[in-house]
Design a protein around this nucleic acid. Sequence first.
DNA 1: GAATTTACGTCAGCTATGTTGACTTATTTG
DNA 2: CAAATAAGTCAACATAGCTGACGTAAATTC
Lengths: 192, 192
Amino acid sequence: MKRRDVTVPVLPDGPHGAPDTDRDRLIACAELLFFAYRDFINDPDKVLDEYGFGRAHHRVLHFVNRNPGLRVADLLDILKITKQSLARVLKQLIDEGFIAQRSGKEDRRERLLHLTAKGTRLAEKLANLQIKRIGKALDSAGTGAGEATRRFLFAMIAEKDRDRVEHLIRLPNAPHEKEANAPASSQSQERP
Amino acid sequence: MKRRDVTVPVLPDGPHGAPDTDRDRLIACAELLFFAYRDFINDPDKVLDEYGFGRAHHRVLHFVNRNPGLRVADLLDILKITKQSLARVLKQLIDEGFIAQRSGKEDRRERLLHLTAKGTRLAEKLANLQIKRIGKALDSAGTGAGEATRRFLFAMIAEKDRDRVEHLIRLPNAPHEKEANAPASSQSQERP
DNA sequence: GAATTTACGTCAGCTATGTTGACTTATTTG
DNA sequence: CAAATAAGTCAACATAGCTGACGTAAATTC
């Protein structure tokens, strides 16, 4: 690729002759979100590839790991995909021994999802990759960045889903200090 | 969907009897990133649907809008997709009059990308939706959240891409206060 | 000036992950 | 018992990635 030396307006002036910095800052956030997410997804993807899995499998593993006993309906609600989309990856994960189902004790129509030992190993391996990257990023972002970032990300979630997510992530000091409650479905009472 | 009222350990204690809050906080970031991105993408998607476009089209519109005169090769580098993947959406955008190409003046092999008036209208419409959501989220996240969030997101980007991104977003006060420079390609001079 | 490299476009085919709509089965609930 | 619910399944389709191969025009190099 050739390089040209051309001077170019770096920060084009807004309508009033001054840079539209507020807007630019918000747009920068949008672009950063894109790049950050792109790379956030990337380390796990490499590992998943070795198993013949994709991101969809990762998401299922993750949320089942974090919420053992999750029902299929809950997972659908978390992922916001259709039953058929989920079915495909879930079936694979079950067939290959990463996820086990147990019938609900109270409601035997429910299939409560759990990770097997094998599933837990993979889920943790993937989680550790992401945790590592996030940890480093927060360190380099300075004190208070974690708190601020969580608040920002939380506020980016569609209003109607925030309660649900807040319960789901069950963070020690949740974004708005609401009392934490039972995860989406979770635990329940089973486990004989 | 039925909900059960079951009391459940909200914050399972870690190995030392205390909650493993550090790890939990990092995992919360990961989950929040997933939910935030999911919904971040959502408003534009609805609009794009009306045009028969998808996210891929949005990304192209966005980066061409922000960097008029971008070359195809630059776009590939930004999006990290293959030429063939890009070709499909780019062709549509050109055929339907959202994007125009001009041969480079110095190097006539290059096809420099620009938005048409129609393209600009759509790109701005989409950008405004996202800006609005981000603006609200930052407000609700408190002072300093923007700064912190940008730093965090920037640090989440793969190291080898950070320089490039930093130039690309040309933020007034970039994450590390480096001097802003010309956009990735657009007219540009960089490239190692 | 010929050969090579570069920028871009394109053909053909594959995969992962999402979608809709319809139907079955087991189980709970009214 | 009838109706609603949780889950599984079939078929068909769309989007957006991917690989590999090849063509063409222009620029660069030998």
